[in-house]
Design a protein around this nucleic acid. Structure first.
Length: 142
DNA sequence: GCCAACGTTGGC
DNA sequence: GCCAACGTTGGC
């Protein structure tokens, strides 16, 4: 079971918009970076990840789940670009900011802190648990 | 709005 | 196959 983090500029696609999609979920389109695409290729249905607001907010605001595994990005003009579909699972009652992540020794190796450019990235199980707890989730929602 | 970091492109 | 030029992301 792997864990992930997905970045989005809230001005373009926000957590509220993701939640509004409900169980229908949303294609995580627009990724045009090989590293990010390659991570999505390895994702399995049911795996969890964080939803992060870049630029505006700079904080982890919620938990998403992989609804559909890799497929061609419907917005791409080239089938090289693929993506998964995500569904919102739960809010983080207390969003965890980038500053907080950087200040927490257990999270200092998070890709979020070490490579600000990567828009889809892996999160370790321990990092996932740590952030859930810091975010006010005592247990991971079903 | 600036710019550092990083990825990609294309000339050689 | 190297690397300079360029574009983009995202923190500040």
């Amino acid at each position: 079971m792997a864990y992930w983090l997905f970045k989005s500029e809230p001005a373009k696609w926000s957590w509220d918009m993701q939640k509004a999609k409900g169980a229908e979920g949303q294609e995580w389109d627009g990724v045009r970076n090989y590293q990010a695409r390659n991570f999505m290729r390895t994702m399995k249905k049911g795996e969890r990840g964080f939803f992060y607001h870049s630029n505006d907010g700079k904080e982890i605001v919620g938990i998403v789940e992989v609804l559909n595994e890799i497929h061609v990005d419907s917005t791409a003009d080239n089938p090289t670009w693929e993506c998964v579909d995500l569904v919102a699972v739960a809010d983080l009652p207390k969003p965890v900011t980038l500053d907080t992540v950087k200040a927490e020794p257990r999270l200092k190796d998070m890709v979020l802190a070490t490579n600000s450019r990567l828009s889809v990235q892996p999160v370790s199980a321990e990092e996932f648990r740590t952030i859930c707890a810091m975010g006010g989730l005592d247990e991971i929602p079903a």
